[in-house]
């Protein structure tokens, strides 16, 4: 928590120019040197990378279009008719927390992370194109009133988002599929894209 807070402060202070922070690994692997002489990534290439992640089932399953989460590699409706509920945390007696705790459970194969819940319906991504998702995440009316900075923060530091790269094992003990872009590359791509003014390509 403390570390995340520190990043956040730095981030706000230095704005998007602080490319240094973008290369910080989030899983405590140590500090890597700043990119230095590296050419900044092309914003649209960064967009592609970011969207490869955001359209992945690890993200979309919990950004569903309706009242029911999806699950699994085939994004089927969550078993047992599980529903979003009023607060995105499930129904009164069938909360997400009835089964999902704040970390993955290797015995049951039930995934978990802090604040395990659905994105609000305004943030539905299911069935949206890349461009529509991008518009949605930039639109304060739909993204929970977030500024671009706050959106970048959510996309790159929120533990529930970053769970996608530590998705644990399923009920059969098989590892869940991770998004197609490594976490640090994704984080970097988000920041590069935002830094470049969050351009949305014509598609």
């Amino acid at each position: 928590m403390k570390k995340a807070y520190l990043f956040y402060t730095l981030f706000l202070a230095a704005g998007m120019a602080l490319a240094y922070a973008s290369s910080q690994p989030q899983d405590g692997e140590g500090i890597t040197p700043p990119p230095g002489g590296e050419e900044p990534e092309d914003a649209l290439q960064a967009f592609d990378k970011m969207m490869a992640v955001l359209t992945h089932k690890r993200c979309v399953n919990c950004h569903p279009a309706g009242g029911r989460p999806r699950q699994g590699e085939d994004s089927h409706y969550h078993n047992f008719n599980v529903q979003r509920g009023a607060d995105g945390h499930g129904l009164p007696a069938l909360r997400c927390g009835t089964c999902h705790q704040r970390e993955n459970n290797d015995y049951s194969g039930v995934p978990g992370a802090p604040e395990w819940s659905l994105a609000p319906l305004s943030m539905k991504w299911e069935g949206l194109s890349r461009v529509e998702i991008a518009r949605s995440i930039l639109d304060p009316a739909r993204n929970g009133g977030r500024t671009l900075e706050e959106t970048v923060h959510h996309l790159t530091e929120h533990e529930l988002v970053l769970w996608a790269w530590e998705p644990g094992v399923d009920a059969n003990g098989r590892p869940r599929e991770k998004p197609p872009v490594p976490k640090d590359e994704y984080i970097k791509a988000v920041k590069v894209w935002a830094e470049a003014g969050a351009p949305i390509p014509e598609e």
Binding site: A93, R95, C99, Q101, Y107, S108
Partner: peptide, 10 residues
């Protein structure tokens, strides 16, 4: 007070 499935609760 909340219903929890204990097989998946460390």
């Amino acid at each position: 007070g909340m219903a929890v499935r204990s097989c998946s609760y460390p």
